[in-house]
Design a protein around this nucleic acid. Structure first.
Lengths: 262, 262
DNA sequence: CCGTATTTGTTCGTATGTATT
DNA sequence: CAATACATACGAACAAATACG
């Protein structure tokens, strides 16, 4: 059995895009034009375009036309860094190195009851209190990541009061905790997942809210010398403009313009 | 301005799913039933279901009904390992540790001309020859990853003949190269990206071919003592059933049933 | 700023095909 | 084979966004 017509149309258009016959940024023929080109109804043509849209090959703009999407040069962040420093530092390094301008909003700080997941990660009882520090990060003015760090409230009670207060912690949260409480970060563990964005994320990153562009969700769990878990940071990045890098062993320093790989 | 009707219907159904009113694995009301429930036409109801399908909340099955998808317990692989051993070894460790049964097909070996991307990664001239070793990996009988390693053909010419021949390399390719050529791996660098699967990948992983389930693409570039690049491994995993882990510094060994995080 | 033409977005009705039970 | 449910396809109308004179 032959493929349905809308699929054949989509395949044909995909070929034309991938062969360069229709270049990046170009406008596709209008729906009316495609109707006569393929002798199909408008709805059928639109089904084909929906397939291409889902694959992120084209992007329809109401009132203007449907355009072939430009390839995005992704931003690369390195996950392996100094086991003793916090996540945000790593992010700043990586960003400034490329000559881009990072901009972090003031964190929103709340005391919450730990959800099942947060409690399990931090090895505390579900429903016990945690401090949540939520932050929006921009690069060159465009929204780049949403980050939420969870600390057991115990840390605040024991002297790290700044954790529970709004405002940046100049010296960095990890160093601050080390100074106040003598809790030293000796390592961390990241877990990388991909999922559809929720409504808030879609709005912030200006992603389509149909979930066709996924987000990276990176859980960073920090450990102290005793193996205790004193921080969980969850960071969300749009998957279309981000890549992550892991370096193990002796690897030469990456030079600029090192846009490797396929 | 109100949302369009199909979006309202989708939101309402999403609420019912996320609140548990319609449980995982349950069948949604049929399109006919939804038509009367929401006083909408069949096409409008179907638009709503398409949105939920794109978000991977439901899955329509022709002739049966539309079902709420079951949550998948993801498989977690660790990217940080011994800087001196090859990628496949890491994969095997991680898999067998969980009591699952890995199964690697015999590699398909070809000599190809390096594409722009492969050439740039391996620091060789575009169009020069590389050996490509492509392998399909299964876990418990289900397709799990597609892996392709690229080696400069030079390595074969200089004595590592097994690289260019079909069949597994018992001792592992990294150790084999070290023995034959004295090229020792001292580190590697992974780059993690996410994209829509191509047709071959969609077929192998049994993913829908509309690209709504993305794949992880992990580039592992291996370095020797002189900083030379002697291998590029590209591995593709379906993003709906995989997570990756990065460990930095001193982190306690993860116990079983350690399904952390949100 | 207004009006008009163009283009995509939403919604309906209808008919027929295909998969499952 | 028949009933049910989703898949494909067509035609039509109006709405909303955009561009342009």
């Amino acid at each position: 059995m032959a493929d349905p017509m809308y699929r054949q149309i989509a395949d044909d258009l995909r070929d034309k895009i991938e062969s360069g016959e229709i270049a990046q940024g170009d406008q596709l023929p209008t729906e009316i034009e495609l109707m006569s080109q393929y002798r199909a109804s408008r709805n059928t043509v639109r089904e084909a375009i929906k397939l291409l849209t889902a694959r992120r090959l084209v992007e329809p703009r109401a009132g203007k036309g449907t355009y072939v999407v430009d390839e995005i040069t992704p931003f690369v962040s390195t996950l392996t860094g100094d086991p003793r420093s916090g996540g945000t530092d790593v992010y700043l390094e990586a960003v400034t190195a490329k000559g881009r301008v990072p901009d972090n909003k003031e964190p929103r700080v709340e005391v919450q009851q730990a959800t099942t997941a947060v409690a399990r990660a931090l090895r505390i009882k579900e429903g016990s209190f945690v401090v949540s520090r939520h932050q929006q990060c921009y690069i060159d003015g465009t929204p780049w990541s949403l980050q939420t760090s969870f600390y057991p409230k115990r840390l605040v009670d024991e002297g790290a009061v700044k954790l529970g207060e709004p405002g940046d912690i100049e010296e960095g949260a990890v160093k601050y905790i080390a100074q106040k409480l003598g809790i030293n970060q000796v390592g961390y563990r990241d877990t990388i997942a991909v999922r559809a964005p929720d409504e808030i994320e879609a709005t912030f990153f200006r992603l389509p809210d149909d979930g066709r562009i996924p987000v990276f969700e990176i859980f960073r769990l920090a450990f102290d010398e005793t193996g205790g878990r004193f921080r969980l940071t969850v960071t969300v990045y749009p998957a279309d403009r981000n890549r992550f890098r892991v370096i193990v062993g002796e690897v030469p320093i990456t030079t600029l313009a090192d846009t490797d790989e396929e």
